[in-house]
C-alpha cells in the first residue's frame, strides 16, 4: 500500500501544515518508506495479543474532586498574541 501525493496533501491540511511542491514530493516518498517498514512489522503474528493502548503498566490513576487555585488571568493570558480585557482575541470564527 502506498500513499499518493494527494493523501499526503490532505494529511498536511488536517495538521495545518503548508508544504511546497518539492516538500510534498519528498514527504510522500519518506512516508511510503515508513509504511514499507510497517509492512515488515506486520509479518509478525499478533493475533493472540491485545492492541496496546498504553505502554506504562498503570491503571486507575485518579484525582480527588477538590478545587485548587487557578492562574491569575494575567498569567493565563501571558502568551496570548492579542487580548481584549481578560479574553483571548483570535481571528473571527463563525459557524
Amino acid at each position: 500500500m502506498a500513499l499518493s501525493r494527494e493523501e499526503i496533501a490532505h494529511v498536511a491540511l488536517l495538521s495545518r501544515l503548508h508544504f511546497t511542491e518539492e516538500e510534498l514530493a519528498r514527504f510522500t516518498e519518506q512516508m511510503n518508506d515508513i509504511l514499507l517498514h510497517f509492512e515488515t512489522l506486520q509479518e509478525a503474528d499478533t493475533s493472540a495479543i491485545a492492541a496496546t493502548t498504553h505502554v506504562v503498566p498503570m491503571v486507575n490513576v485518579l484525582r480527588d474532586d477538590v478545587p485548587c487555585p487557578s492562574l491569575p488571568p494575567d498569567t493565563a493570558l501571558a502568551n496570548a498574541p492579542e487580548r481584549v480585557d481578560d479574553l483571548f482575541k483570535v481571528p473571527r470564527v463563525v459557524e
Binding site: 484525582r63 485548587c68 481578560d86
Partner: peptide, 25 residues
Amino acid sequence: ATKIFCGCSTEPGAPANTHTCPVCL
C-alpha cells in the same frame, strides 16, 4: 466541583479566564 483533568473550579458565572491553569489551557 473541579474540571475533568485539573483542579480548576467548574463554578459557572466566574469572570473570564479565572478558572484556568496550564492543564486546561
